[in-house]
């Protein structure tokens, strides 16, 4: 299947006269009030196969990875001066750009196919978008993007520009527009950070760092006394870095516009002995201001009788 044509199965459905919409009734009613007419349910899929963490990189190397591919990377070295096969003398947090790129490619193709269907219907926009991604088997992730295509009453047929899209529908969309924002596109991204633990991280994540405290790295527990809590710097940094990377990657897709209604998801896959993969998804609607900011009056406060 090429990326630029609506599959035959969908064509049959889209060719019929009547519309189908994934909108709830209140959303449907609000849509009509806004002058948006639903023309059909549109969707896109993509099943992606993941590279196995860059092939051999699932095994621990002899030294930290290079930082050639431009992602976030930070290296920690053992303060103890031991040389032992048991003692990991270096640790590294590294952004797995190939995972991020695979995710982006999968999401983008599914999204592009949905827009393709919307274009085929002559729609101006797609509202109430839902997207899911799930792993059906090892290393395969499928992306599904679904929404309701709408035509704007009075707008030119088959507008030259791409249909706009938004996760919002119904009254929430009406309120967004009332607040002075026009939706541009749904945007989503994933970040992935691999933590290779070094001796200190490993000791702390395994809970025996306290007995090593006496060895005396800077910032380490005072005399190894039990009860003085120790933060695990490397892992903490990875958790924050994953979120910041997701935000930065998404910001690159905003082109200076605003991200509305962001949804953050985070997943940690512990691989043992402090090693882990931290992943973070971020999605939302890219919106653009079309009129000046005009705050509403403070709403009435109510109590419901029931």
């Amino acid at each position: 299947m090429t990326g630029s044509s609506v599959p035959e199965a969908a064509e049959r459905r889209l060719a019929t006269e009547s519309f189908s919409s994934g909108l709830t009734v209140p959303d449907f009613a609000a849509c009509l009030q806004m002058g948006l007419r639903p023309v059909g349910l549109v969707q896109g899929f993509c099943a992606m196969q993941w590279g196995w963490y860059g092939g051999a990189q699932s095994l621990r190397g002899l030294s930290p990875l290079g930082v050639g591919d431009g992602g976030y990377s930070r290296v920690w070295y053992c303060p103890h001066g031991f040389v032992s096969a048991e003692h990991p003398t270096w640790g590294q947090n590294a952004e797995q750009t190939w995972v991020e790129d695979a995710w982006a490619a999968g999401f983008d193709s599914a999204f592009a196919r949905m827009l393709e269907e919307a274009r085929a219907l002559g729609a101006n926009g797609v509202i109430g978008v839902k997207d899911t991604s799930r792993s059906t088997q090892a290393n395969v992730t499928e992306f599904h993007v679904l929404g309701t295509a709408v035509k704007l009453e009075g707008a030119a047929q088959g507008a030259a520009s791409d249909p706009w899209s938004t996760y919002l529908a119904g009254q929430r969309l009406a309120k967004l527009i009332e607040a002075g924002f026009a939706p541009v596109s749904v945007v989503a991204t994933l970040s992935s950070v691999r933590v290779w633990s070094y001796c200190m991280t490993r000791a702390l994540m395994e809970g025996y760092g306290y007995s090593m405290g006496a060895i005396g790295a800077s910032g380490w527990a005072g005399g190894g006394s039990l009860g003085a809590a120790q933060e695990v710097d490397q892992v903490t940094e990875a958790r924050i870095a994953a979120r910041q990377i997701a935000k930065e990657r998404l910001r690159q897709r905003l082109g200076g516009d605003i991200l509305h209604g962001a949804l953050v998801g985070s997943f940690v896959r512990e691989l043992g002995e402090g090693d882990q993969v931290v992943e973070c998804t971020l999605r939302g609607t890219r919106v653009r201001r079309f009129k000046d900011f005009d705050p509403i009056e403070a709403p009435v406060v109510t109590v419901r009788l029931s």
Binding site: Q33, L152, K247, I258, G261, R288
Partner: peptide, 28 residues
């Protein structure tokens, strides 16, 4: 409301400017 909606989608590209640039929020 219809007029507002029509206006929203007729707006020229790239109007977001000033302090709004690049704002991200998870508010509804």
């Amino acid at each position: 409301l219809r007029a507002e909606v029509a206006r929203a989608f007729a707006a020229p590209e790239g109007k977001t400017s000033g302090t709004d640039r690049g704002v991200t929020s998870d508010l509804s």
